[in-house]
Design a protein around this nucleic acid. Sequence first.
DNA 1: TGTTGTGAACCCTTTCACAGCA
DNA 2: TGCTGTGAAAGGGTTCACAACA
Lengths: 252, 252
Amino acid sequence: MASEDARSRRTALERDTGNGSKSAGAPPAGAAAQRHIPPASLDRLPVYLRVLTAMLGDGIERVSSDELAEAAGVNSPKLRKDLSYLGSYGTRGVGYDVAYLSGQISAALGLTLTWRVAIVGAGNLGRALAGYPGFGSRGFEVVALLDADPMVIGQEVGWLRISPVDSLEAVLAKTRANMAVLAVPAEVAQDLCDRLVESGITSILNFAPVVLQAPDDVQIRKVDMATELQILAYHAQRSQALRIAERARLAR
Amino acid sequence: MASEDARSRRTALERDTGNGSKSAGAPPAGAAAQRHIPPASLDRLPVYLRVLTAMLGDGIERVSSDELAEAAGVNSPKLRKDLSYLGSYGTRGVGYDVAYLSGQISAALGLTLTWRVAIVGAGNLGRALAGYPGFGSRGFEVVALLDADPMVIGQEVGWLRISPVDSLEAVLAKTRANMAVLAVPAEVAQDLCDRLVESGITSILNFAPVVLQAPDDVQIRKVDMATELQILAYHAQRSQALRIAERARLAR
DNA sequence: TGTTGTGAACCCTTTCACAGCA
DNA sequence: TGCTGTGAAAGGGTTCACAACA
């Protein structure tokens, strides 16, 4: 797997531990010299951001940790801990300013600049992703859609024209893509991953049901529906077994 | 949290209902009332299963924990620990029998019976899921595909005909679906979730970018590409910042 | 000999309780 | 008074080293 930071270089922009440094108020939005957000916490930030964005759309200006936690499906101490890794952006006795907090989370996630995404594979899945409204809306722009099938190359999908995957390297260079999504059959995923890495892509979202091998400095995340269903099956079978055992116990 | 839960004994699967069960020896694949697999471990079992299935297809009969771990992208102590929660299915000095081990993992996950899946939403994503080969092959059968759009209702997708979501309850009953996949816009996801729960569905895989609220006995898992991309963005931005800091340090 | 299975140490995550502050 | 921010405790997960054993 190409994650596991493992190395803690201490390059973390000086050591402003913020430990009691109340003078340092809110840092100017921008460079956001954040320090290492724990992975478990990082996984939840996008959820908070989405909830906050929805609240913003509803005209809600302030929110308490209880309310936000409720809407995000976590408990409030966990939420506050998570937010504390970013900084102290709330007001005691009051709560959080929705607009300000969502801005801070966006900054922490690196969404202040727009990421240029190439989608490799233009089957139903690739098209669904290309058309996904959540993409374009916030921080991500789909700049290329590629496929190997001569029948679909050249077709238009939304604003995009499907490019031949043969010219992957040229397309990546021309579009200056800095992220890639793999929505291709499992058999060709590793090969395409290699080509992406060779072209300098270091962030890959993989929908193919294979474990990709890549250098450690390449970040790969996997989305896999079969895996998710199998985990659901485990729980379902388990509670089913419990019900049967219970019934047997009662009948005894 | 007052569960008695005796500190785990030696073996993982004890409590056979004792109905004419053999004594020692390999347990008959079956109801395996297994004992609580830790969530973190559970998340990895599908990966192992997939790798093993691939090996089986390649005619590989035996595998060591090192080889399997390598292929699954984890380290070998972790793999062995994970497998130990299921039982002792390896042979010391030799390794694991690929066919046997994959059978045991399948059983542990509850894939011995076929789960009947209803897919709600027949857009590109829903169709991609309905046509996903990994579904039918591995313990899951798509038994219904539903949509709200009158223009697509009645269309055929593979073996399926798209049903009107208005008759969701009737379709679930007729097809005896016991799992559901939500591939619908965020705005209608909670409403459909409620209807699924009302109809007795307790396992839901949610692709809509919302946090669904449901009773505790309903298992919900979420798949969300926007979330995944945002996490990738964090890492990308971070290593970018590190490179810049490094360059500044060298220039100093 | 070679590899599995596992207690124990270590590390990360979550929870709790309350100090700190508007 | 009310809600945030955070040390400290509790709870899991991962790693390690090695005992067990074909």
